[in-house]
């Protein structure tokens, strides 16, 4: 009996002390609302790409000269579903042919190689709710019969509903 008393007394004392520490004097609440808006971001790793077809890109006897450039990337972050990226150029009448392909895409499905024109063409499909990147693989084609010249393109990548 004496032994039980010796155990119970410290437990009761501890319990009382804890009760005193947890005494609530006042409460206030506030509501935190997190709203995630529709986020649609698309960005290129570099705003400028220069391509020059010179003698090194030509083969004697061949009319066609080609040059590829894959020095830049396209990056995106999208939190809504069923989205695609289209591409178009501002240059209405280019002298030479410029093609584009999405290479090594981390998300989505790359469309077949696009010959750039002012009409938006599918570039990358099925990229809803993802962030990722792909390589911009440009291929320039010039014929000897087209002579020399410069084509200044402004390429626009746009996220659209699929």
């Amino acid at each position: 009996m004496k032994f039980h008393f010796l155990i119970l007394v410290p437990i009761i004392l501890l319990f009382c002390a804890q009760m005193q520490a947890q005494t609530v004097y006042a409460t206030r609440t506030h509501r935190v609302t997190v709203i995630v808006s529709t986020i649609t971001l698309v960005q290129v790793s570099s705003g400028v790409v220069n391509m020059t077809i010179s003698g090194a890109d030509a083969v004697a006897g061949q009319d066609l000269m080609t040059l590829t450039n894959q020095s830049t990337n396209l990056l995106w972050g999208i939190n809504s579903s069923l989205k695609k990226i289209t591409v178009n150029t501002s240059l209405a009448a280019p002298q030479f042919t410029l093609k584009l392909l999405a290479g090594s895409s981390t998300q989505g499905t790359a469309a077949p190689q696009v010959t750039l024109s002012t009409v938006p063409a599918d570039f990358l499909l099925n990229i809803g709710r993802s962030s990722g990147n792909c390589i911009l693989q440009y291929t320039a084609e010039a014929l000897a019969s087209q002579g020399t010249g410069t084509d200044p393109h402004t390429i626009t990548f746009t996220v659209q509903n699929q």
Binding site: G47, Y138, A140, T154, I155
Partner: peptide
């Protein structure tokens, strides 16, 4: 949308 200027010179 994002833009990139590509200059092709032959």
């Amino acid at each position: 949308a994002s833009n990139q200027v590509v200059t092709l010179e032959v």
